[in-house]
């Protein structure tokens, strides 16, 4: 298909899938804050997520529809990123002897940051969805699992590094996606950059508040 073959088409797939994942992250982060209201609120919220859409949807159907959509977004985003990166590297086979890094840190870390986030995704699902690597790992009790996960040094380290990567990724990704979808413009670029920075900061702080809450004993 002509659209998918072109670099602009692949970037569009990345922009749209990125926007879907970003929207999900906003809700995910907001939901995480339930942990500050105690085990009943948190576990009740987790249970409610399984009942969304009932009785039109069967039990847990909404959750599975969201999971399938997110998986499609991840696969589309990663496939396009891999193919575009291969192209980009091939387009500059001989580098400059006089090298200077002049792009922003967020821009330079998009590719490896994406890989870090993808690896974290696997860990995160094994930790808090299936409970395989969680020290508590009790189904239906996310509050206790979260507290257990952030009582380990490795759980905290992995999570904090990944959330910083997410923040940087959103900082450049949101701005790039807006440009790809044609929303850029001379006057609008400042607004887009400010929105990207705001979203990145909001999500990073929001996500990091949970392990910080557990480490400081606010969440117990």
């Amino acid at each position: 298909m002509r659209f998918w073959r072109s670099t602009v088409g692949k970037k569009t797939v990345m922009a749209v899938s990125g926007a879907i994942m970003l929207l999900y992250l906003v809700f995910h982060m907001a939901g995480n804050l339930k942990v500050f209201f105690g085990p009943d609120e948190m576990n009740g919220y987790a249970h409610w997520l399984r009942t969304v859409g009932e009785p039109v949807l069967h039990h847990e159907w909404f959750l599975w529809i969201a999971r399938v959509a997110l998986l499609a977004a991840v696969v589309g985003h990663a496939t396009a990123a891999y193919q575009l990166s291969r192209r980009d590297v091939a387009a500059r086979p001989v580098g400059y002897r006089h090298r200077r890094a002049r792009t922003s840190y967020a821009t330079r870390t998009m590719r490896w940051g994406g890989v870090i986030i993808a690896l974290f995704l696997v860990w995160h699902i094994l930790d808090l969805t299936t409970g395989t690597v969680n020290p508590n790992g009790e189904a239906g009790r996310p509050y206790e699992n979260i507290v257990a996960a952030f009582h380990t040094w490795y759980g905290n380290t992995i999570y904090i590094v990944a959330m910083l990567a997410v923040g940087l990724h959103i900082r450049h990704g949101f701005y790039g996606a807006a440009q790809t979808l044609g929303a850029g413009g001379r006057t609008r670029d400042r607004l887009l950059k400010a929105t990207a920075n705001g979203l990145a900061l909001l999500l990073t702080v929001g996500f990091l508040s949970v392990p910080v809450g557990v480490m400081t004993g606010i969440v117990e």
Partner: peptide, 10 residues
């Protein structure tokens, strides 16, 4: 064989 845009602004 040109690469794609990653909006670095360079």
């Amino acid at each position: 064989g040109f690469g794609g845009c990653t909006v670095t602004g360079m």
